[in-house]
Nucleic acid binder design. Sequence first.
RNA 1: GCGCCUGUAGCUCAGUGGAUAGAGCAUCAGCCUCCGGAGCUGAGGGCCACAGGUUCAAAUCCUGUCAGGCGCACCA
Length: 582
Amino acid sequence: MDLVRDKVAGALHDALQQAKQKGLLTIEPFPIVSLDLPKRPEWGDLATTVAMTLASAEKRSPHDVAQIILDNLSSHTAVFDRVEIARPGFLNMTIKRNLWLEVLSEIAAQGQAYGRCDLGQGRRVLVEFVSANPTGPLHVGHGRGAAVGQALSNLLRAAGYDVVTEYYVNDAGRQMKLLGASVYARYLERHGRPVTFPEDGYRGSYIVQVADLVQERLGPVLLDLPAEQAEERCREMAAEHMLELIRQDLARFGVAFDSWFSEASLVNTGLVERVLDELRTRGLLFEEEGALWFRSSAFGDDKDRVVRKREGEWTYLASDIAYHRDKLMRRYDLLVDVWGADHHGYIGRMEATVQAYGHPKERLRVVLVQMVNLLRGGKKVEMSKRAGEFITMREVMDEVGADAAKFFFLMRRSDSHLDFDLDLAKQQSAENPVYYVQYAHARLSSVFRIAEERGIPVPQPHEANLDLLRDPDELSLIRKLSDYPSVVQGSAAALEPHRITFYLQELAGLLHTFYYKHRIMPVVVEDEPSEDRFATAGERVIKQRESVTPELTAARLVMMQQVQQVIKNGLSLLGISAPDRM
RNA sequence: GCGCCUGUAGCUCAGUGGAUAGAGCAUCAGCCUCCGGAGCUGAGGGCCACAGGUUCAAAUCCUGUCAGGCGCACCA
């Protein structure tokens, strides 16, 4: 919680406590005091609905309850300028300006740490994301998953969690076999051998490239091997190659993982069998029609699920159960899985798994990432995975850059469809929200550069007379800065990084408005216009003539430094750079 | 047929049970002798899909209906 909210909540808490002691209110149980930002300026800086929520239990009108709270609040003159009761029973509070100004010192003192909180209390959380099969290059959807996963990890870390990121590599099973077979087929084609391409094989052009690579490294030796062995060689080389490409793409995107976890390692070490034995001894597995089933319906899943097929092969679910069991054994307090939305049917299964091992289902939180529609020239770019025609993450990065891509991926709630306008993302103007926010940061860097050139010092908060900051535009900026820690906390708690993008756009907007209407440093040359040609231009006259004293410049520079700090902190949560020049 | 998600301004979307529902884009009307115009100001635009219910209070919670998306494999 932020500085101002903290004090206000404390004051309200005291008032309620006092009223209770005096027997004016029973207050049982003690309510959570909500603090909302009112929509209209005349409703003050903060509002609480606590009187209305208490009213029915107290058997009094909301207004009466509000009055009692107000009466017991009067001692807190250091916090409130004015507290008013509004219609049903809102308490509208106007906060002392001094308290708002303290926010600036707070930010200056905390710097990069401003916005962090202890929501997580050091609890260990594993964030698993991307986890794309190494059967091809990452596509746009994976890019969104990467952006969301990274932002979530940063957010949780800022909220006091001990975060580890992990990529689960699906390097076992049918898809990998198909990959090997597809590459082998292209390899044979290259040598003019007759082939029938595998029915569900991978048809992308990158498969041909892998086949070329195989040829380059091994030459024609595979032609003499039995098909099965040759395919396996192809599979190994292809998997290795693909994973390397994926790593490179992610690195260029600025996303690194603490850990890469191989599915094959689960199968090969026999962990899958051991883990399932554990379930069997607890009566959670049963055989039917020759297959082995997991009784997931006992834990709220729609139906039971097969873990071993009649032919004796493990299903994908089996290794996923083992994988999640392994994560739980690694003693994480919270598992966050970022999945493509088309996997949503899987949630019930995994929740059942977590519960089957004796954990509450809340220990697993699945964040679904919806599809991305790419738009170019206002038209949807068609993609077909089957034909191997899809826009890769690399292409998007090449076209718009990693920063813009991340910002766009994080502009919407992750579980809603995203229209990604490639033309807009490249555009360098106010219509492009990425530039809008980054520009605010660069603009301030420029201000500080010019201050330096002119020999104007940028003071520490205690060196400036912050009391000079009293313009409404200044106060709305400061209030916004003050709100930042609450936004971070809410965003982390809800696992919704898009809230940060919205916040940053709002903050940048306030900065740009302020910047246009006011001056930070005095005009260098005060040329008197010979005739007052701006006399009719309304607002502009104000700006032209706003005289800025050195003291006001100092105060505003302090404020601007904190604005810049918060923009930087926010962008860094999103994994986006905060440029000094653009 | 069953399940999950989504229906909010022309478009894309925010909106932690609270007051007269917001933003960006688009449209229209304006603004550069000035620290970066990559910017700013203003206007119009809404039966929050529909119908019930819970509540002092519903876009928000519940039920139903309609529409869209996605799942419903001994695929991954």
